[in-house]
Structure formats: structure tokens, C-alpha cells
């Protein structure tokens, strides 16, 4: 990650008078976003709620979210990066040609108006969704938008926040970071964490057939991953922890039914702004929680001889490549 200027969702609820959704469809994908955190909320700083806030939607197509927006900007597919770059120039009063603007599907008047609004708001926020981060040049796009938000702070308060998918993806990301320094795409095959998405990501490891066992928790790769990865999962001993029967559980050698997090098992979920929320189960489950299963497996493994003979490895390595 490069830089990132962000805040918790409560700050948006309290202060954001200018809200841009870029490449997302919150009305359908995050239906409570408007009412809980953004445009519909009244606050001590924005007592009239919706009337005190401006919402802009930038997307390649007119989704349901466009109806909720004050301004809808239809960007040409694949031109997000160009549009962000133009905005970065315009806020600094740098020259941008008409042709470059037209290529993105925008008009100069539209962009001048947008820039004026961005600069004159008190607290602006970009929410960027899959449409921005998962398309061509995805990494560049989100990095560019994060930079635009950072640069806007020369004029007014501005932040940016990714709209994460469902499940506790953020939680896994947060914990991997504090234990290994990296969010995902990590290998421990030299005894310490190394990071290389594209090489060590689960899907790459499976497709190459690099692993000889798999332990799946809180995910259903059997439903979402490319066929070669699924084939490899079926070939090797795959252990799956899941409250339900899933594509993965069907192809797994072992499926341990566990209690559903948040419904019948306690735990912590991390919200998209990385705030931890405790999950308090309403129901009891006859099944153990994921945590209990993992703990018991760990205890059993600890009784076995260690995989590396003592003294066969240095304790610490420095200047690693």
C-alpha cells in the first residue's frame, strides 16, 4: 500500500458533507451504507441530514445508486485512471486539454463544477468499490484515488475508503498484518513470513500444485476459484471447516461442521474501516466454533515431534532477499 488518508465510518456520519461513490453500487451491494453511515444521517454538524450532504456517483453505468445521487458522472469503461489523473491536475490548476477530458466521457463544465464542489466542501470522502479496484489497472486506480484524496487536503478535509466485500475479509487482513507484517499472499516455507501476491496467493499456489495439503476456513474456494485450483484441492487432502455444506466441503477429504460465527459462535468481525466488532451469538450450537477446532488441532500437533530438528536452523536471519 502507498499512502491512505482515511477515517472510521462515524466520522463520515458526523461530518461528511460531500460523498463520492466511485465504481460501486452501494444501493444494491451495501444497502445499509446510505442510512447507517452516509447520506441519510443527521448529525450535530449536519442537522438537516440529506439536505446538508451532496452525493456524487462515478460509474461506467447508471445503476440504482444513481437515483440516490445528486450528480451522476458516467465515466467511459477503463478510463477511471485517466479521470482521476485529470482531477489531480485540475485541483492544482494545471492545464488539461479538451480532448483528454472528452476521452473519459466527461465535459469541462462538469469537471469544473466537480472540482469546485470538492474544494468548497468541509469534509469530503471517496468510497471506492469493486468497479474501481477490480478492473484493469486496479492497483493503479485505487492508488491514484488515494493520492487524490491526500492531495485534496491542501484545500480541505478529504478522506478515502475502500468498500470491502462481505464476510470477515478485513479481519483476516488485519490479523495477518500484525502477526506477519503482510495482509495476504504469504508463505512460511522458509520458516518466516514472505510476501508475494501472484506467487504465494492461495489461488496461485493451488494452480501450480505447490501445496500437498489444504486447510480451508471461512471460505468456499470450490465455488469461486479457477478449475485447475479446484482440481488440485480435490487431489490433495483438503480439510474444510464450515457450518454448511459447500462446494469446497463436498470435495474435501474432511469436513468439520462448525458453529456459525455471529449466529451461534462468538468472535470478532472487522468492519471495512478496520473497527473490530464483537459478535455475540443469539443461539447455541451443538457444533464447536472454528476457534475451538483450530485450537484442538494445534494442541494435537504440538504433541508431535517438531518438523525441524532443534538447532538445524538459525533463530534469526538478516538481510533477506
Amino acid at each position: 500500500m502507498g499512502g491512505k488518508v482515511t477515517c472510521t465510518l462515524g466520522e463520515v456520519k458526523q461530518r461528511a458533507d460531500f460523498i463520492v461513490y466511485w465504481g460501486g453500487n452501494p444501493a444494491e451491494c451495501h444497502p445499509r451504507h446510505f442510512t447507517k453511515y452516509t447520506i441519510m444521517q443527521k448529525s450535530k454538524f449536519l442537522p438537516r441530514g440529506r439536505k446538508d450532504r451532496t452525493m456524487v456517483l462515478v460509474d461506467i453505468r447508471e445503476t440504482k445508486s444513481a437515483k440516490a445521487a445528486d450528480i451522476f458522472l458516467q465515466v467511459k469503461p477503463g478510463k477511471d485512471f485517466e479521470l482521476i489523473t485529470i482531477l489531480r491536475a485540475l485541483i492544482k490548476d494545471q492545464h488539461v486539454g479538451d480532448e483528454q477530458i472528452a476521452e473519459t466521457g466527461m465535459t469541462r463544465a462538469g469537471l469544473d463544477d466537480l472540482v469546485h464542489r470538492m474544494k468548497s466542501c468541509k469534509f469530503g470522502v471517496f468510497f471506492f468499490g469493486m468497479g474501481l479496484s477490480m478492473t484493469r489497472g486496479k492497483h493503479m486506480n485505487s492508488a491514484a484515488l488515494l493520492t487524490l484524496a491526500a492531495e485534496m487536503n491542501a484545500f480541505t478535509k478529504f478522506v478515502a475508503m475502500p468498500m470491502r466485500g462481505h464476510g470477515n475479509v478485513t479481519g483476516a487482513d488485519v490479523i495477518m498484518r500484525w502477526q506477519t507484517g503482510y495482509p495476504f499472499g504469504i508463505t512460511f516455507n522458509r520458516g518466516y513470513p514472505r510476501y508475494n501476491p501472484g506467487e504465494f496467493s492461495t489461488v496461485d499456489v493451488l494452480v501450480r500444485g505447490d501445496c500437498d495439503a489444504a486447510f480451508i476456513i471461512g471460505a468456499d474456494p470450490g465455488a469461486t476459484m479457477p478449475q485447475p485450483a479446484i482440481d488440485h484441492l480435490a487431489r490433495i487432502p483438503t480439510i474444510c471447516l464450515d457450518p454448511h455444506v459447500t462446494h469446497t466441503s463436498r470435495l474435501a477429504r474432511v469436513h468439520i461442521t462448525t458453529a456459525a460465527q455471529g449466529i451461534s459462535a462468538p468472535g470478532t468481525a472487522y468492519r471495512m474501516d478496520e473497527l473490530p466488532l464483537p459478535l455475540k451469538p443469539a443461539l447455541k450450537s451443538p457444533y464447536p466454533s472454528d476457534e475451538e477446532v483450530v485450537r484442538r488441532i494445534n494442541e494435537a500437533i504440538a504433541k508431535k515431534p517438531f518438523w525441524l530438528p532443534d538447532g538445524s536452523q538459525p533463530q534469526v536471519v538478516t538481510a533477506i532477499g
Binding site: 506477519t180 512460511f188 513470513p193 538459525p314 533463530q315
Partner: peptide
């Protein structure tokens, strides 16, 4: 930690042993 992956790469790494977790 998320902002400094390039530093993790060049720093000292703790290798896992039976009594110790790995880390950077």
C-alpha cells in the same frame, strides 16, 4: 506495517521454532 512492506523485506526475520513463532 501495511505501509512498509519494503522494510519487512530487508529487516531481520525470526524463524519459527517449537517454542517460538516467526516474525519480522
Amino acid at each position: 506495517r501495511a505501509m512498509t512492506p519494503e522494510d519487512h523485506r530487508r529487516t531481520q526475520a525470526f524463524i519459527r521454532t517449537q517454542s517460538r513463532r516467526s516474525g519480522l
